[in-house]
Nucleic acid binder design. Structure first.
Lengths: 330, 330
DNA sequence: CTGTTAGCGCGTTCAT
DNA sequence: ATGAACGCGCTAACAG
């Protein structure tokens, strides 16, 4: 439209006018025409030519979980600042779907992937990594996979929670856990047990129950625990959904928190402070985790993070103390 | 690798072997090689050639809001069934960001867009539509824009809620609203007022307060309402966040729901049933909204929905009755 | 300071 | 039943 060649237009629109010493008059003409005709370059053609699409894949087990959607927001905003768009992929907590999604993203030639992996088995992820697409793992980590990760220090979070419960005079503390075997869960359980050992109590096996991070698990296990002859005085719930289940169970059984049973939960939520008994929670710095993961990914994409310079990061969570734990010493 | 030309491989991999009468032996060889070498076609090159990328854009004001992340999940899953991936875009509730995102998506040559628009002004959306990229609007609608939408029937939802409150004997019912001027809000307020008119009460202006869907708005307005000499007996909150704010205010003031004040809220949440006083809510069929929107979009992409065949859809929400409204007639 | 050429990987048309 | 040639829109290399 301007009479100039595509090359010249391309150079101007990519801010290389100066480098190629395009005349100011030409530059202005081209920029004006681009604005007038509302021209936006075809990113598909660009991606093909550059072998760089300026897109990243974000794979999560469940985007409807507020925990992951908060992370999604940070990742999207941070990525866009750099001109990147993100493909949202929900693995439905299913490992074969996750595998399929990784292949799909490879076919779409994403420049990198942020993955919150589903399970324990990481074979397909390490396999996948050989294709050369940078991956950063968040939330959980895959031991010995050599893939860089950013997570919370779940061990520390658990210790803070349980040591606080102990400091309030509790000794019979139950732990309702999630999916056994994954790093996130075992780190939390280890923190729970070590806190007890520290004051000379051996963690009783019968007090560690549950096998799923969902609400139903919390409900069922709470009913069982509270139905025992000698019931624990406190419950440590390893996820936001588990504690919802616990609260439903206690309400149904006519028990009050913290009068009849104390409760501390992993994962701060918008409603945590607003419950009948404002809940003491372990808050993870999810925005920080997301931000760091994105930065690590872009470093790797830029080539600044070659093989061998793997950096793993664990962020310390903090305990938000409210009034869901009864003080037995008072 | 197989010795066959790219053309033949392409035909086999796109299931056109039969059409081109490729021999069974060749087909098998190619499929085997593709599997062995873990070959996935370059979707970028494909998109360039076909002028169809099999991607759609999903633009929301805030992906961290569980309401939108639930919708995102359905859209992602439904799209993937058809081989499509979605670009997640967060407009940060900012209209100029929304505008910029639409241009970005156009540059990425998405085949269609699902948009939960930020505000009242829809000029940029109608402008954008002239580029020929199909758009479906959800959550809110843009009156007179001629763009097809799928939303809840907010008027009906409000009537159900308020008529229920009335049926429990309440007459002094306050309404804490969100962003004034958008269809979603005004429809709900209209439903509230009409319900009162129906029983011969003129809606009092002083009982309709608030200007934002956030938690802070609910908190402030609740404190003001409950601090009045003659306080209302019930509050109708027009969003999940507003009702969180109301609950925080009542807790701080030492008031009990429903004994001291009754409450009904828009938007069912996972915790709604688990609050100290399980909350009566208006539940929108968000999964259904998302599913219908996706289907409409794919119809349009497939060309089955030419100009003029615009179809707007409103889904009736349902009232989930729990125990946050006191029965004054008992 | 600007234009011409070539090629990214694919699917399609034409040719055989 | 299969291959060769072409072009989608872009940018980097080369040419002047």
């Amino acid at each position: 439209m301007t009479g100039f060649s595509a090359s010249t237009v391309s150079r101007v629109l990519n801010d290389k006018g100066e480098q190629y010493r395009i005349s100011t008059r030409t530059t202005k003409k081209i920029l004006k025409a681009a604005a007038d005709y509302n021209y936006y370059p075809n990113r598909i053609a660009r991606g093909l030519r550059l072998e760089r699409t300026e897109t990243i894949g974000f794979v999560v087990p469940d985007i409807a979980n507020p925990y992951f959607s908060s992370i999604a927001k940070t990742i999207e905003v941070e990525s866009r600042k750099r001109g990147y768009s993100i493909f949202l992929c929900d693995s439905l907590d299913d490992i074969s779907t996750e595998k399929e999604l990784l292949n799909l993203l490879a076919g779409r030639r994403v420049d990198g992937i942020i993955l919150a992996p589903v399970g324990i088995d990481s074979g397909h992820v390490t396999d996948f990594r050989r294709r050369g697409i940078p991956i950063i793992i968040i939330d959980r980590y895959l031991p010995d996979s050599g893939i860089p990760y950013v997570t919370s220090d779940n061990y520390s979070g658990a210790r803070q929670a349980v040591e606080y419960i102990i400091s309030m005079g509790h000794r019979d503390i139950a732990c309702i856990q999630g999916l056994n075997g994954i790093s996130l869960n075992s780190d939390r359980v280890r923190g729970y047990m070590d806190s007890l050992v520290k004051i000379g109590i051996k963690a009783e096996k019968s007090l560690i129950v549950g096998d799923d991070f969902g609400e139903e698990c919390g409900y069922i296990q709470a009913r069982l625990l509270l139905g025992r002859k000698t019931r624990p005085t406190a419950i440590f719930a390893l996820s936001n959904l588990i504690s919802l289940g616990v609260m439903r169970a206690t309400a149904e059984m006519g028990l009050k928190i913290p009068d009849d049973i104390s409760l501390v939960s992993f994962d701060e939520q918008p409603y945590s402070a607003l419950l009948a008994s404002p809940m003491t929670t372990v808050e993870q710095s999810i925005n920080e985790i997301a931000r760091i993961a994105v930065n690590m990914l872009f470093d790797t994409i830029a080539g600044g993070n070659k093989e061998g310079r793997i950096k793993n990061i664990m962020l310390r969570p903090s305990l938000i103390i409210r009034s869901s734990v009864k003080n037995l010493l008072a």
